[in-house]
């Protein structure tokens, strides 16, 4: 097993939650709804997936429960921003805070813990170096995560729904005058974004066989950065996710070597993010109706 292969395998495993969240975020953002909510969707998804697995003993039930949790949070955001025209940034922050609060509350209520859940059934990935690649296939959420953005790309560019998402995100009045229901398209896009981002969260808790408080740890925001870095295009966003994951892998491996002070090493993903956003992207042009009513 070469070092390169180990590096690749670790990068893919780290990338999976980013890929799921970015897949959801691209959909919502292209429909015109800001995706600050990805962090909350992930955390909610991680918790409800753990809960599903805990009560059923089956990680697949956990996956479904995770999706359901994401859908619920997505619909709350959709109702607030579409039906009641709440400010999308404010609603997004509220959703994130709500996810933190709810997961903590139920963690205490159900498991009487303020830090983590008991161990639940999950998807075991091989951890020994020799089993790295086999381990990738052993956790079904990894291949699913890898195809999430290609599937969203197909949806966006090849299907009627995707065309409507793009139209609604750029010029909702134009879509409305040809009989497209702007609200409906956005409801579906935001609900799907909740479900997809929640899958990223489910991956986290099922991979670790438990939920820990705040385990999304900013990954939703990294995914949002990847969307912007990818200029709101699904395939470019996928590359951005892999890039960020590779930076994180590099950081972990360098840290293990202890050659450079760890504080500097830990900065690598964030410095690369800033450099990438400032230098490589240039002026990113968001969907014209993003964040507007």
């Amino acid at each position: 097993m070469s070092i390169a292969l180990a590096f690749l395998a670790q990068t893919l495993r780290i990338a999976v939650p980013y890929l799921f969240a970015a897949a959801g975020g691209v959909l919502a953002e292209r429909s015109g709804i800001i995706s600050l909510t990805l962090e909350g969707f992930m955390l909610g998804g991680a918790f409800s997936a753990m809960l599903g697995s805990y009560y059923s003993g089956n990680p697949w039930v956990g996956v479904l429960a995770g999706i359901a949790g994401g859908l619920v949070l997505g619909l709350v955001h959709a109702v607030a921003t579409i039906r009641y025209k709440a400010d999308q940034v404010v609603s997004g922050i509220a959703i994130n805070l709500l996810a933190v609060g709810l997961t903590r509350y139920f963690l205490k209520l159900v498991f009487d813990s303020s830090s983590n859940s008991p161990r639940v059934a999950g998807f075991s990935a091989g951890t020994s170096t020799t089993a790295l690649v086999a381990g990738l296939l052993h956790n079904p959420l990894i291949p699913l995560g890898l195809v999430a953005l290609p599937v969203v790309a197909w949806l966006m560019y090849r299907t009627p729904f995707g065309l409507r998402v793009r139209a609604v995100g750029e010029h909702p009045e134009a879509a409305a005058t040809v009989g497209v229901s702007v609200a409906r398209v956005r409801y579906i896009a935001v609900a799907l974004s909740g479900a997809l981002a929640a899958l990223g969260g489910a991956y986290l808790s099922l991979d670790q066989h438990q939920f820990t408080d705040g385990m999304s740890a900013g990954r939703g925001f990294i995914a949002l950065a990847a969307i912007i870095f990818g200029r709101w295009d699904p395939m470019r966003a996928a590359l951005a996710c892999l890039f960020f994951a590779a930076a994180e892998t590099l950081q972990i491996q360098l840290q293990a070597m202890q050659a450079i002070p760890s504080q500097f090493v830990q900065m690598i993903p964030y410095v690369l993010t800033i450099v990438a956003l400032v230098g490589v992207v240039g002026r990113a042009v968001p969907p014209a109706a993003l964040g507007r009513e």
Partner: peptide
């Protein structure tokens, strides 16, 4: 104009009444 600037002429014209083949648009 009620046109979506980044979309093509065809996409603008068919928006809301897209011809399909299977799940996809028959472009």
């Amino acid at each position: 104009f009620m046109l979506v600037p980044p979309l093509t002429i065809t996409e603008n014209v068919i928006l809301g009444r897209e011809p399909r083949s299977g799940l996809a648009i028959d472009m």
